[in-house]
């Protein structure tokens, strides 16, 4: 374990500020996704509107993280673990912003669904949401705690989410054929399922970045076995 503090106090302050911005983004993104899904499942248009409005603050934070990251690189010319932390923070913020965009898309689709009678197939979204959010939380946790093992465990969990998306898509297409009057509704659910599949992809990216930050290892584009394989 290396010594915690740099001799240059301003360097520590800058790194801490960058990290806090990423954590703030993570909290806001989680909340935005939660609000969007609540708006869908509870048919709450107000919650959908709030989720959509949340995106602005997250977008601004992404810009702030990039600005602070560049400033750090310029002023302090970090190396080794410090450099990896800065680069990973900037990459994480990009993934968090895209996740928040998915939350906005879910909220917009939910608002459209709320204008029509409820569809039972909306239940298909629940397990996907639970799975995607678990991946999200673990990836952020792994980044914060520099837990390489936890980060690695997130990556193989993306495939089951992809499978759930494919399965939900097939079911919804069947329903579109069976009940064409609700075609728009089923289409919106297909898009929402796709949004959650993308949330899983971003969580995977974040987990890979967490491994890089902690262990200087690039695990992208590898097949990692699931924990129980």
């Amino acid at each position: 374990m290396i010594a915690a503090r740099h001799i240059l106090g301003t360097f520590d302050e800058a790194l801490s500020s960058l990290r806090n911005s990423v954590l703030m983004m993570s909290s806001l993104t989680e909340r935005s996704l939660d609000r969007a899904i609540t708006g869908l499942l509870e048919r709450d248009d107000d919650m959908c509107a709030i989720a959509i409005a949340d995106d602005e603050e997250i977008d601004q934070l992404e810009k702030q993280v990039d600005k602070d990251g560049i400033d750090l690189l310029l002023r302090f010319q970090p190396v080794a673990s410090d450099l990896r932390r800065v680069v990973s923070a900037m990459k994480l913020s990009s993934n968090l912003e895209r996740m928040a965009d998915q939350g906005t898309n879910i909220a917009r689709r939910a608002r459209k669904l709320n204008q029509h009678p409820a569809l039972p197939e909306t239940e298909l979204i629940k397990p996907m949401y639970a799975h995607a959010m678990a991946m999200f939380k673990d990836s952020i946790d792994a980044y914060v705690r520099e837990d390489v093992q936890l980060a690695r465990s997130v990556v193989p969990r993306d495939q089951p989410l992809d499978d759930m998306n494919s399965s939900a898509g097939r079911r919804l297409i069947e329903r579109m054929a069976e009940d064409p009057a609700q075609l728009r509704g089923y289409l919106n659910l297909i898009f929402i399922s796709r949004c959650l599949e993308r949330v899983g992809d971003h969580a995977t990216n974040m987990a890979e970045d967490a491994v890089y930050a902690a262990a200087a290892e690039d695990i992208r584009h590898q097949h990692l076995p699931a924990v129980n394989e």
Binding site: R5, I7, V79, A80, A216
Partner: peptide, 19 residues
């Protein structure tokens, strides 16, 4: 050395944690 040094002391020196 500058991306992922093997020794803790090296990392601490090059990152400005001592010296």
């Amino acid at each position: 050395i500058f991306s992922n040094p093997a020794q803790r002391q090296t990392e601490e020196y090059i990152t400005g944690r001592f010296g």
